[in-house]
């Protein structure tokens, strides 16, 4: 369960504080529900995801995480000068799995389908290879809730299908908070929806209702 209590967020610009992106968001996200975050570009979807993930902090308000929560999948977490394997080792160790490195590394190498490139520096990867590595990394650990920012768009068509399948298996046993612009992706993975509009969040128990409300905001 994640409790978001009266959260405000704005960013600094060169001309002082910018406009409020999030204005007083109060939400409780249960553990076992798959939620889609929707809203127009710049509505604060990624901002809210980063705040939930704990890699950025609200200007006001608080966020309490009562569960094991993943890092925002598909964003950062990979150092370009290290090889895929070295990155994977680091991530395993940081998550306290230094003792069964071998199994997890085998899984990551296998799932990402990087083959020999697993031992090349990440900066030599194509963007598809890189997102495959990032996707495999986040699947290697068991979290209660995964957070993902457009992560299913990784790789070519064949890998996307495999990723979608793995994603489905994963969200049967864990919760998911995701940002996606594609309506069918949202319908495929999410039951509930959060609509971000004018810095406010609106919760919908059914993703279809959220998408309908979303269309009303810009039409």
């Amino acid at each position: 369960m994640i409790e978001i209590n009266n959260v405000y967020k704005r960013y600094k610009t060169k001309l002082g504080p910018g406009p409020w992106v999030l204005r007083g968001i109060t939400l409780t996200i249960p553990s076992k529900v798959n939620v889609g975050l929707i809203g127009v570009n710049g509505a604060g979807k990624s901002t809210l995801l980063r705040l939930i993930g704990g890699i950025d902090h609200p200007n006001m308000g608080s966020i309490k995480r009562h569960c094991r929560l993943s890092w925002p999948m598909g964003h950062g977490g990979v150092e370009p000068d290290l090889t895929g394997r070295q990155n994977a080792k680091f991530v395993c160790r940081v998550h306290g799995f230094g003792h069964d490195l071998r199994d997890r590394l085998a899984f990551i190498q296998d799932f990402s389908e990087l083959g020999k490139a697993f031992d090349d520096p990440v900066r030599t990867y194509s963007s598809g290879m890189r997102s495959r590595l990032q996707f495999a990394l986040s699947l290697a650990f068991d979290f209660d809730i995964y957070i993902s920012d457009e992560v299913t768009a990784a790789g070519d068509a064949r890998f996307r299908n495999k990723a979608a399948q793995a994603f489905k298996d994963m969200i049967h046993r864990a919760g998911l908070i995701m940002v996606a612009h594609n309506e069918s992706t949202l319908k495929q993975f999410c039951q509930a929806g959060i609509l971000l509009h004018n810095g406010q969040a609106h919760w919908f128990d059914a993703i279809d209702d959220a998408l309908t409300a979303y269309k009303d905001t810009y039409s």
Binding site: I55, L69, P72, H75, G76, G77, E79, P80
Partner: peptide, 11 residues
């Protein structure tokens, strides 16, 4: 030099 790793809350 470790900017990428701040994606993990524990770092």
């Amino acid at each position: 030099s470790n900017r990428a790793f701040f994606a993990f809350r524990q770092v």
